[in-house]
Design a protein around this nucleic acid. Structure first.
Length: 588
RNA sequence: GCGUCCGUAGCUCAAUUGGCUAGAGCUUCUGACUUCGGAUCAGAGGGUUGUAGGUUCGAGCCCUACCGGACGCACCA
């Protein structure tokens, strides 16, 4: 909020002191260590180093050209050449007052909106959504919300697995073993049963495998009967997807499965071959290195036993079929042509890093005019308490549906225990929000690239860095609103609120950094920055709440200022949780 | 073998272009308490950031080597 102003003034001062300086690197940020001030820049040390100047001398020079007296206390120089800014409490009071009036929420929308396509979740038809989908789903949904909050255009695209080799087996299962009653009761479970059954038969009996293959060929060549079954499987799966996404509050702008791109795959390969990018190899068609990248960075080369060898990207299998590389290229082409994005994000697990490096490199060779940013936003695994991938006790994949049910049940026990007088329906609704919120928060809190250990006790804990703690802090911010009569009037606030107590000032300073935090999330695709920001906000609010009585404050101006801080904290906390995809509750 | 990622307090995790004194929670111990409002707050303990070097005014972060771990490496996605 104030940060962009300080940064602009700093850049002007630097431009006058060093006309050739690269201003895009002259940045202001919140102080990492509050003893030095509220904001700082480390840019001058870097600039001085490049020019072999004395950094303290440069800092002194820039300080003399810098005019921020309307916002800050006198600017300080510290250490090797830091510039430290401390916001005047009168300025803080003014920003808080304007936020309380509803003029802003410490977020400046971008003046240069980008179009960002986000590819996430990507479940498979005829299979249940499971624990392996949750990080992609939560991360993608959260990033979409952050980009939108900052004013960017977002297209969320669910790239459903609806066209793979598994359908050959499913079609055999459908004709040989379908239990229509079971299908009616739980379609996903029945389809999963069919798949497993036929898969096992294939391993024992080659004739079954041949049948699966021929059913798949029939399907892919447009056989009406198989197509009808396939459509039914799709429809039944979509019901499951819709149900779960509704419960999670996750929305997609478009849902285009792999089958959508099927008609284009042959053309993709033909074009790549015609352009000399792909060629036949061992019966398949593959893309090889063109040698333009340094060997160590080339995703199409691999070092085996001390020798650099081809590490090709296969776009057509030796049996003539296409694989996900081909589909991904066609998908990229479609997104490029349809939305002209500035940025495309793929939210998938870490093991796919090589695939995406190969994909991006191949596409850029195919379409040299393509300049958008392509990012593989990858994440680590969810582990059980034994440190191996999270499974059920019997070793099966944990289904998302079961996970949500258990979260809601466990939260219900807590809510009913803490608040037995609430009507049961309300307890259930609160438990739903707490349970699912806890699951999401536990997933978004760790750095996405690290694996994390799943623990019910930890994610539903009422203390520590958890969703329930934040949701509880939110209910505390709301308790004033319920005391209608005694509430100070926020409609007619003075231009600046008197902020005096240490806790008031620290809370106010932290509120100001909401927008900065959201930008940090988008630049590294890391929602954990927002989690930690909100946790710290809740902490500062609690300190304020303990030490700064609102309704009991003697002075009316103090009462108003504190009520405004509560109100603004409430909005930031509520908005922040909402951006994480977490619903708030009024009481819990 | 090669590649990617990781190794931070007893445990689970943070650490914002390399920045000033590496922070939280859990656990342990102590304190506040007939509360506007304790699912809270305050305080204490706990660290050679895997090891050894290097670059830098400054390194958890960058470079090199080594140790330990996860994952990937031609027709699954």
């Amino acid at each position: 909020m104030l940060l962009p102003i300080l940064q602009e003034r700093l850049q002007a001062a630097v431009a006058s002191a060093l006309p050739d300086a690269d201003l895009s690197r002259v940045l202001v940020r919140p102080c990492t260590n509050a003893t030095h001030g509220d904001y700082e820049t480390t840019a001058l040390m870097g600039l001085a180093k490049e020019r072999k100047m004395n950094p303290r001398q440069l800092a002194t020079d820039v300080q003399a050209r810098l005019d921020v007296a309307d916002i800050c206390e006198p600017v300080q120089i510290s250490g090797a050449g830091f510039l430290n800014f401390r916001i005047r409490s009168e300025t803080l009071g003014r920003v808080i007052a304007s936020a309380a009036r509803g003029d802003h929420l410490f977020v400046v929308k971008t003046t240069r909106p980008r179009t960002v396509v986000i590819d996430f979740s990507s479940p498979n038809v005829a299979k249940p959504l499971h624990v392996g989908h949750i990080r992609s789903t939560f991360l993608g949904d959260c990033l979409a919300r952050v980009f939108r909050t900052l004013g960017h255009r977002v297209v969320t695209d669910n790239h459903i697995g609806d066209w793979g080799t598994q359908f050959g087996m499913l079609l055999v299962g459908w004709s040989d073993h379908l239990d229509t009653a079971a299908l009616a009761a739980d379609p996903i479970a029945e389809m999963e049963r069919l798949y497993k059954l036929v898969n096992a038969r294939c391993k024992e009996d080659p004739s079954v495998r041949d049948r699966a293959r021929s059913e798949l060929v029939k399907l892919q060549s447009g056989d009406p009967e198989n197509l009808a079954i396939w459509r039914e499987m799709q429809r039944l799966s979509q019901v499951q997807f819709d149900n779960l996404y509704t419960r999670l509050g996750v929305q997609f702008d478009v849902t285009l499965g792999e089958s959508f791109y099927n008609p284009k795959l042959a053309g993709v390969v033909a074009e790549l071959e015609a352009a000399g990018i792909a060629r036949a190899s061992e019966g398949a068609v593959a893309v090889f290195s063109d040698g333009t990248l340094p060997t160590k960075e080339d995703p199409l080369l691999i070092n085996r036993d001390g020798e650099w060898q081809a590490n090709p990207f296969l776009v057509r299998k030796s049996d003539g079929g296409f694989n996900y590389a081909t589909t991904d290229l066609a998908t990229l082409e479609h997104r490029f042509n349809t939305w002209a994005p500035d940025e495309i994000l793929y939210i998938t697990g870490g093991p796919q890093q090589l695939h995406f490096r190969q994909l991006f490199q191949t596409y850029r060779r195919w379409r040299p005019g393509f300049t958008a940013r392509l990012e593989h936003v990858w994440f680590g695994s969810i582990l059980g308490s034994d440190g191996t991938p999270f499974k059920t006790r019997s070793g099966e994949t944990v289904k998302l549906n079961d996970l949500l049910l258990e979260a809601e049940e466990r939260a219900f026990v807590i809510v009913a225990g803490k608040n037995p007088d609430l009507p049961e329906a309300e307890q259930h609704e609160i438990a739903r929000r707490i349970g699912i919120g806890a699951l999401k928060y536990a997933d978004l809190l760790p750095n996405r690239q690290s694996d994390y250990v799943f623990s019910w006790d930890k994610l539903l804990a009422l203390t520590g860095n958890t969703a329930p703690y934040l949701q509880y802090a939110y209910t505390r911010t709301r308790s004033l609103q319920r005391k209608g009569g005694e509430r100070p009037d926020l409609a007619s606030l003075p231009d600046s609120l008197p902020l005096v107590a240490r806790e008031e000032l620290e809370l106010a300073r932290h509120l100001l950094n909401f927008g900065f935090t959201l930008e940090a999330v988008t630049s590294d695709y890391r929602p954990n920055f927002l989690c930690n920001y909100l946790y710290e906000l809740a902490g500062r609010f609690s300190q304020f709440w303990e030490n700064c009585p609102v309704l009991k404050a003697e002075d009316p101006a103090t009462r108003t200022a504190r009520a405004a801080l509560c109100e603004v904290t409430s909005r930031v906390l509520g908005t922040g949780l909402n951006i994480l995809g977490i619903e708030t509750v009024e009481r819990m």
